[in-house]
Amino acid sequence: MLEELVRTIADMEEELALQVVREFVSGGGDPQQVLDACREAMDLVGKRFEDGEYFLPELMLAGDLLEQISAIVKPLLVGGPQASANTAGTVLIGTVHGDLHDIGKNIVVFMLEVNGYNVIDLGIDVPVEDFVDKVRELKPPVLALSGFLTLAFDSMKETIDALSDAGLRDSLKIMIGGGQVDEAVRSYTNADAFGLNAMDAVSLCRQWLAA
């Protein structure tokens, strides 16, 4: 039954997937196993996205389906869900100040979480000081700065300059992405790398956080 759940989620068969979940838990099945199956399905979704078989709409649907399933099974978990398996490393992320766009950032968050990273999302229009304070407090190995508008080039640069001035830059890998970001912007902002899509963010984290 759980193989069926993995398959239906991965194949975007929303109604069927929800039906399987309802039947499984009403028959006394272990809700934790449902969450484990979801994780397995999300791995498949991520892989298909990586392979160019899936695109943003599939990620959106998978994310929404995951929320619906969690809403069904989480109240049934005795003692809450087991500790998150997101142990691949911590990534701090946010959209830089002046920019209110969050779709690209949210997709990156989703893909990083699916791939086992612990993501801390500071939201949109994040002031420079908030990034500096959070980096100081949490000491994440990776910071991801998002921005859609061209004004974000300067906001990214200011944020990274402030981290350098605060002596926090050396132990931190910084990636930027969104909108018109390219190698010229990477060089201008002094980031370590830029990404064109959510998979680039995952690849960079894999590269930077490899044990």
Binding site: T150, F153, Q180, D182, A184, V185, S187, Y188
Partner: peptide, 9 residues
Amino acid sequence: VPASMLNTG
């Protein structure tokens, strides 16, 4: 012509 070039090049 890329925005990045017009802004930073």
